[in-house]
Amino acid sequence: MEALVAVMIAVLVGTGVYLVLRARTFPVILGITLLSYGVNLFVFISGRLAVNQPAIVGNGPASDPLPQALVLTAIVIGFAMTAFLVVLALRGQGETGTDHVDGKRDDGGEG
């Protein structure tokens, strides 16, 4: 199972990085979303992988509850940031008339 999770994270981060390097704001936003999915999973498994275990400390084995709390915080923050970035990208489109990340028009002129 470890290998499967590792590959999953690698694919998410890999696609995320590829998309972040695109020149249009929309792929960049998608890339950042995928990147944060991968990173959230990574934080989540830092408490080790365990199956069928309760998340609270009790009698017997329990999975580590802290990474779950951390990842919840990270998800909330990531969600808010993505929403902000979408609004910013829309405003960039409105102000510069193009969705290029540098605000450049397709003909090479400044937006």
């Binding site: 972040v20 704001t25 960049v28 950042i32 990147l35 944060s36 990173v39 923050i77 990531g78 940031m81 902000f84 970035l85 910013l88 990208a89 405003r91 960039g92 102000e95 510069t96 990340v101 540098d102 605000g103 937006g111």
Partner: peptide, 16 residues
């Protein structure tokens, strides 16, 4: 806005 997009995207990657 142009400077802002760079700033925000870079810092989001930094946070990740």
């Amino acid at each position: 806005v142009r400077a802002g997009i760079h700033y925000v995207v870079l810092n989001l990657i930094g946070s990740a």
